[in-house]
Amino acid sequence: MIELDDFSYAYPTGSRPALRSLRLAVPAGQLCGVVGPSGAGKSTFAHALAGFIPHALGGETAGRVVVGGRTVADTPLPDLVRDVGLVLQNPFNQISGVKFTVREELAFGLENLGVPQEEMVRRVDAVLAELRIEGLADRSPYQLSGGQQQLVALGSVLVMRPSVLVLDEPTSQLDPVGSGQVFDAVRALHRAGVTIVLVEHKLERLAEIADRVLVLRHGEVALDGPPATVLADPRLADWGVAGTRYTAAARLARERGLWPEDRDLPVTLDAAVAGFRAVTGGVESR
């Protein structure tokens, strides 16, 4: 579904390339997590998949990004939005400001694309139901909580039925309740078969839903694999990525001889519960 073919990119003002020779493919239906320290190129990566690089931001590119069979650099942005939906960090800045209800806000992209009215109503209703925000339909987008605004931002790209969804740290500005709402929606979309690239630093959440995790560092893929392997890698901390506390606890336990050398370190709550049960033989601690 997504292919990067030796793709490199440098910002117009940047002295060093922000992305270097990326070679990877994301198959249809995969939920691919992206993590890395700040400045690693995560956001740049997201913008490149959605076509804002090179279309809107300029700069030097080499190699290709192909999404859904179309080469991003050769496809005009308004056509690309039908293939790739992009959701950004700050929910407030994604509200169009020209619509006065959530229902109209969701329809904004479809209006721009000239989708017939009946079709528009159908799609907006479907997305309202899919994200379970029917109750917000007639509210002003400005009256919503951050989590609700982010769901509206997600919905307003979903109405265009993109086959790929790119989310750039969608929960970094949200409280736990709001983050939970966004993660639930992402999980549901993943089940519905949407290909998802999720840049996220809440690793304990990412570990539970991702099929695969990429670690970016200095614009390169430093690690690539299933979350259980990648997120337990001991180098993450040196690279400025905080692993989960489950991994940290098991690692410290291993240093103190309380966790077998040959047992993998857990990255999720479930794996940690199973691991520590096995280690303690299920004995209650005093």
Partner: peptide, 10 residues
């Protein structure tokens, strides 16, 4: 960017 992601440039 958010506007372009909603095909405002169409």
């Amino acid at each position: 960017v958010a506007m372009e992601a909603r095909a405002f440039g169409a």
